[in-house]
Design a protein around this nucleic acid. Sequence first.
DNA 1: GATTGTATAATTGTATACAATACAAATGCA
DNA 2: TGCATTTGTATTGTATACAATTATACAATC
Lengths: 225, 225
Amino acid sequence: MHYRYNKSDYLDQESLRSRVFNHILEDILNGKYEEGQALVETKLAQEIGVSRTPVREAFRQLELDGLVTSIPNKGVVVNGISDKDIEEIFAVRSLIEGLAVRWATENINEEQRRDLEETAELMVYYTKKKDYQQLAKYDARFHSLIYDSCQSKVLRHILRSLMRYIQHARLGSLKVPKRAEQALKEHREILEAILAGKKDIAEQKMVHHVNSALENLLKEKNKTN
Amino acid sequence: MHYRYNKSDYLDQESLRSRVFNHILEDILNGKYEEGQALVETKLAQEIGVSRTPVREAFRQLELDGLVTSIPNKGVVVNGISDKDIEEIFAVRSLIEGLAVRWATENINEEQRRDLEETAELMVYYTKKKDYQQLAKYDARFHSLIYDSCQSKVLRHILRSLMRYIQHARLGSLKVPKRAEQALKEHREILEAILAGKKDIAEQKMVHHVNSALENLLKEKNKTN
DNA sequence: GATTGTATAATTGTATACAATACAAATGCA
DNA sequence: TGCATTTGTATTGTATACAATTATACAATC
């Protein structure tokens, strides 16, 4: 009875820690910080409006994820993500996601099949509409559904970590109409292989799909430079 | 002048946080905790002899690494590692380490070549002596040198995380004389491929090597059960 | 002028205090 | 009894206080 609740207390269930984590993550990925820049606990705490404790906890997570480096008694510095890193992540991702779709083909259930088909249809729709915002959303969903369908805690975990790094890079990738249409075809092929239970084909198509995405990304990058 | 130093202050540079992290990690890997067991901050803090703060920071790292799950306002529970997890990790590891040795073949320098050859020779020596303690050490070193030689921050990072999970599983693996000798041969082949610059062979041999290690592990496990 | 020493400030590391939450036991009441 | 309410306790979440460490500024020395 001494408590007063308001809706936001329930809606944003996330702790300060994860809010801080995401905040700093965003800033790093959006290039707000230079590579090697020192992050000062008190300043960040003030900026976000919390105490040092959640900031420190977020630091520890970012550290384990390789986004910052912690130097004892000195502080943490931002690691930055080079083009080489992106290429390496895609190389790893193609292997892991290939494995994921292979296992998904073996383990997917009825509900996940439907979800995957529905998502694929929505992607056709938004590609036609050229709504790249929504398209990106369902593209992420398509891949995410495959991670879930493979029923592997290990793969899900690794892929989640990899995706954190490249989420911003992927966003722009589909904005090229030609790439969006190509991706659509690749998704279709992957989906068909999954539904037909052809795991070798599914894996092979996925590896190819991820590699094309990287190629497209690099091409776009060179254009804008 | 008000300070009193002793050697250990310098030697163990590691913070309480990382001490706590390793402490809990060990306990999880050694099976001290049941799967799903709740870890209580104050109890652990008391047990290790520190305050809650470093314990919490260690929790956050273990959480990101997937070793514990954090439930808001309730606490963290141990995730445990199933046989299925181990198999999946080895499947991933064979792919990633295959990629690592491929890149290592392309990027290795003279010093790393010598280190790798020396390590291989020491492994021959300790296999003959049946000193499995030392053998395990140099086996780890052999793989670790390859991670370094591939010059990829991304791969090093992923492999470090994977190895954390299976370090205890690997330890027993080489204790079977037959496996130790087989591993020796496989290492030799990998090394030769690296030195000859044959990256396809190196990758293929590494994938095979990691898969054999898993097979051996599973065989041993079934025997003891 | 460059270097060293020293005081001071800024920052991190750790411990503790307090608030919020979850859950269980106790209580009250029909 | 059955059930809602409250009270109590353990635990986590957050903030803050204090200690240890490192960086900075500046004077002293050569």
